[in-house]
Write a protein that binds this DNA or RNA. Structure first.
Lengths: 231, 231
DNA sequence: GTCTATAGTTCGATAGAC
DNA sequence: GTCTATCGAACTATAGAC
């Protein structure tokens, strides 16, 4: 335990090298599009070593996913605690605290871009039950805390609306965190999806107003689309 | 030409059967997670017939993707024309016209759910250049028309903001069009991501307010985060 | 812990009969 | 247009030496 912690401070172990290579390739090409051979080559080790450390491809994916998700979520929760300690939270602060750790996660300036966000979305939408379970195990507790904070920052928001709002923020921002050049093309160069500060700023403005509108809409009298008669 | 159109009206050809099977399986498991063998079995034909009709797996994917995308976008554009003909558009109408055709596309009530939305997102975020090119070829022209309409419905929106707004609407809604039960879980059963009308209604409220806020934010004096000095 | 070698399976694609 | 049969390459995982 102590030795392991000391070693991790000194230099990357082969286990870390494998996890780094796996994260890079899985994020880029997805679970099914990445082979154990490629990961081993990228990490500079024999393929059998991957199985020694992680048993199966699925085991390696889970270890890789948990490592980065834990880092993202501990950062998210630390920032949220700070915001809540300071008094009544502003919704813009909460959204920024939710998005920025993911944008910065695994953001290797030398390489492609922030592709772990893509991995979160595809893992959550996977047809493999174990991948969806991984999302639940890694993100649900953090999500509940943020949903509660959103409800606190925007009075009048029901739990249902706060949940949808949380999901919309995630979907809107994470979908475009891996730059594809599409924003550049569609705007004739007026903006760029490689500009992460623009993405965060616009997404925060967009989502904060969206959340307030969900609360305002719920406060209006009369039936509401999609409520299926629960009112 | 005439004969082909007549035949397509009469009954599904083996080509259609293959495209149907491919759409179902690709949408469920992705390009790399689906094999030609599985598609052939699902379609009830020999695997060699897939290569006879579409040459390669990539060719089959492209044909499948184009067929459904064309259907979605012609529906989107027809609705948009209708809205624009009626005078000054309301932003809520535009968002509904943008989202509903995708939600209904390939929505087989007998089976899983509206999973083509997932395929659109993963195809656009793919590391394969030919998949991103497929998105550009299928969706950019439609997107430009909607971005222009959004700018018309929300005065004060720059092309850059309208583009980001369009991308946020797509990301927020399409990410959650394939039900996973996550909304149900996070809200303790207060809402459900299987309820498509709730999704559309909430997403429309959320996004309409978000777009108006982007315009209002741009109108405020002073520098703005992420503009990198272009102001 | 790390390697080489390979077993056993599945894949995309093609050849060739009908 | 549709089939059976199969090639050659890639895959995950394991055995066993060091």
């Amino acid at each position: 335990m102590v030795a392991a912690a000391a070693a991790s401070r000194v230099r990357a172990t082969s286990k870390d090298d494998i996890l780094d290579a796996a994260e890079q390739l899985f994020a880029l090409r997805g679970f099914d599009g990445t082979s154990m051979r490629e990961i081993a080559e990228e990490a500079g080790v024999a393929q059998a070593l991957l199985h020694y450390h992680f048993r199966t491809k699925e085991g390696l994916f889970e270890a890789m996913f948990q490592r980065r998700s834990d880092a993202i979520n501990s950062s998210r929760l630390a920032r949220l605690d700070q915001i809540l300690d300071a008094g009544t939270p502003r919704i813009e602060e909460i959204i920024d605290a939710l998005l920025r750790p993911t944008l910065e996660a695994g953001h290797d300036p030398a390489r492609g871009g922030a592709t772990f966000a893509r991995l979160i979305l595809t893992t959550g939408a996977s047809s493999h039950a174990w991948q969806r379970a991984l999302i639940a195990a890694s993100y649900d507790a953090m999500a509940r805390r943020y949903i509660a904070a959103i409800g606190k920052a925007v009075p009048g928001l029901s739990l249902a609306d706060a949940t949808w709002g949380y999901l919309f923020v995630i979907g809107a921002a994470l979908t475009h965190m891996s730059p594809t050049g599409r924003a550049d093309r569609l705007s004739d160069g007026e903006t760029s999806d490689s500009d992460t500060e623009t993405l965060i700023a616009r997404a925060t403005t967009f989502a904060a107003a969206g959340l307030r509108a969900l609360a305002a809409d719920a406060a209006r009298p009369g039936p509401r689309a999609g409520d299926g008669g629960h009112a």
